[in-house]
Design a protein around this nucleic acid. Structure first.
Lengths: 400, 400
DNA sequence: ATTATTAACTCAAGCAAGTTGAACTTACAA
DNA sequence: TTGTAAGTTCAACTTGCTTGAGTTAATAAT
């Protein structure tokens, strides 16, 4: 089913208040702490309106007074800052054989993360396991369940426009399941479902190298290679929620002795055949190295393993091509690379990227580097899931 | 200067009304005509709120009563439809040696279009010429200037985030000029400035093959090749307004005897070296054919000119690659191709596109063709400019 | 030291716009 | 002929932002 025109929905006083709360919270978050008059100026609201919103946020425990600040004459302004413990968000990553969970506080700080093996990945088994993990996390951190603002669940796509089901997914048994509704019922809190790249992209916004940016691209290394796009503070999801399939785009293949496929005019290959973790593992396996864990990969990196070095070389070249495409099509303020690779691999991969001079991104007035390294490691997707919830507090929901 | 986080601005009752007016107008537009109760159900507003908005829109001349409609029992509902003459929008295209103007009514119907040669393209000369063209159009159509809702001006980029200036643009003398402010002063109406591809994309939404869609990509053939992305009814502009530089992405080069450039690992070339109007003209010139006008191109197409045929073949192959990239990165409901090419060229170009089966876009449940042909011809950009204004009436401004 | 100025905040009244519920109108059905 | 359903209007109510007057406290000027 195609998305059609979104039937925009009407607004009223209640939604206006919700919007303005988001605006105020977002400003406090970005500035660290602010006074009422500053917020009024920044938001265009009257001081009185800001004052009422502050009072309501303080009642809800989201804000704390943070001293006073005097700038020259006049009454010193009481400053307000986020209460880090004013709320928490859970993030889950559901994979074929494991589920991960993270807990972030309002400031986007990691409180706990945990991974469990998953034996049955049918919907009800997964729901049970997430529910169990939620209980464990709350018990281990002492966080009151009433402070949970929601959960973000990261799952492999593809998605359909009607919520979040998948057709020929990596996960069996999930055809046409509305995962959001399912988990929301199981966990008794609001749930957002996203793919790994989108979640990781938002994770970088909530705590990472793009906190001050609202337009950027995030290249995520999971099993394959994904792309999360943040545009004007919002995720770009595409018509059916499957935008950012960077791994599918064709890149020129370096001469590695592999024959070109028939039907493809040149020696082109999908990016995920060159620059994904599974490709690396395949190459290592072909060379007789049975490698699977991050620790093993780190050891190979430390030993300057030649197969790994060659892969890094080839993968960086392919990524350079992909980054060029992303820069020209999305015009991001920066391109961040991160995900489920150890830093020992990710860092040389990012450093190996060489960008063409001739590009829209080659502006004179840019303040960010064109390429940056973002969060990495096993929990970057789950962290991103929790970040989706945190981020939604600070970002007015522009639609609906 | 990078965009940073957009400081979202607060909302109030006045903006709520503006938003709801857009919602209601948009629904009437999509449905053709509607009654109050239908709009209330579709928007989530109360019937009374809709009623008040309808009254205000009718006072403003934007709506007309369009009979009654009875569905079974109950009071027959008075229907409302857009008043085609309730407002007009101007669209301009500023090029190196010409300026074009179009006038669209509220329904997106073309009322007039005109092209004038441009001798001096410095800012004040252009402003004068546009002002003159506005007067001419109003005089020739008898439209009252008070019915002008605004103008959309299409100019070549690149843009900067601070409004709409350009640095190393095709147009000289325009460095760091705020074109929007300039034209708005000259024309005494609100002005939007966009690049050709974005404007043409919105043009297709206002009257074209994507009226019922809110996620699509538009590949625009101007001097080069551009891409306009509409996502959830909004243009995707990127961090500095320069998203969609499709012409810059590298595509595999068919064996046409041209030597590969040094530094590029394979025989890759920017798309606009393969699939742009200027490339076609160059090839024709190299073959001794001094062709410049659309009429001459149409004649060559009718004569099955071999140089043109070869170009069509090569360009379609390159475009196939580009469409594949666009499908996978943006996940649009469809990809539309259009712009400043005559139909005699555009149609075979679109028909020549062959798409890989293996793609995110290869869904089972798609309702639109993957590739469609959109508006073409000399005025497609200027039309798009006017469409920007019309579209803004029906699309709630989600930010700011 | 006293007074003026300035900035930030609070209080109370006012306003705009959406919501709610009762009353009215019309068409179809029993 | 009467009842029911659907659409609309009217009037009272509610929410939330704005406005303007009054209060407080820090700095600057006298």
């Amino acid at each position: 089913m195609s998305s059609g025109s979104p039937t925009f929905t009407g607004s009223n006083a209640e939604q206006t208040r919700r919007h303005n709360r988001c605006v105020v919270l977002g400003q406090i978050r970005r500035a660290g702490s602010m006074g009422r008059a500053d917020m009024a100026r920044a938001s265009g609201l009257s001081v009185q309106a800001v004052s009422n919103i502050i009072a309501s946020l303080e009642r809800d425990g989201m804000l704390l007074e943070a001293g006073q600040r005097s700038r020259g004459r006049g009454l010193p302004a009481p400053q307000y800052a986020l209460n880090p413990d004013g709320g928490y968000a859970l993030g889950f990553e559901v994979r074929l054989h494991s589920t991960s969970v993270t807990l972030l506080n309002l400031m986007g700080e990691l409180r706990l993360s945990q991974r469990l093996p998953l034996t049955d990945n049918d919907p009800s088994s997964v729901s049970r396991q997430l529910r169990q993990q939620m209980r464990t996390v709350l018990a281990n951190t002492g966080v009151d369940s009433r402070l949970l603002l929601g959960a973000g669940v990261v799952m492999p796509g593809p998605f359909t426009p009607t919520g979040l089901a998948n057709t020929s997914s990596v996960l069996p048994h999930w055809q046409d399941i509305d995962a959001g509704r399912l988990f929301s019922k199981a966990l008794s809190i609001p749930v957002l479902v996203e793919n790994d790249a989108n979640a990781a992209a938002v994770g970088e916004h909530v705590s990472g190298c793009t906190e001050s940016l609202s337009n950027y691209a995030f290249i995520y290394f999971g099993t394959g290679v994904g792309l999360g796009i943040v545009h004007q503070g919002q995720l770009f999801r595409g018509g059916s929620g499957n935008a950012g399939e960077l791994g599918h785009i064709l890149v020129p293949m370096p001469e590695t002795g592999i024959a070109p496929r028939p039907g493809i005019p040149m020696r082109m290959t999908p990016l995920e055949n060159m620059a994904s973790r599974s490709t690396l593992l395949q190459r290592l396996a072909a060379a007789g190295l049975k490698t699977t864990t991050d620790a093993e990969l780190e050891a190979l990196a430390a030993a300057d393993d030649p197969v790994l070095q060659q892969w890094l070389h080839d993968a960086s070249a392919s990524l350079s091509h992909a980054v060029h495409v992303v820069e020209n099509l999305f015009d991001p303020d920066t391109v961040v690379l991160g995900g489920a690779l150890p830093d020992a691999i990710l860092t040389p991969l990012v450093e190996g990227i060489s960008l063409a001079e001739h590009s829209t991104a080659q502006r004179t007035n840019r303040v960010m580097p064109r390429v940056m390294q973002g969060h990495s490691g096993a929990f970057s997707a789950a962290r991103g899931g929790a970040a989706l919830v945190i981020n939604s507090l600070f970002t007015p929901h522009t639609l609906s």
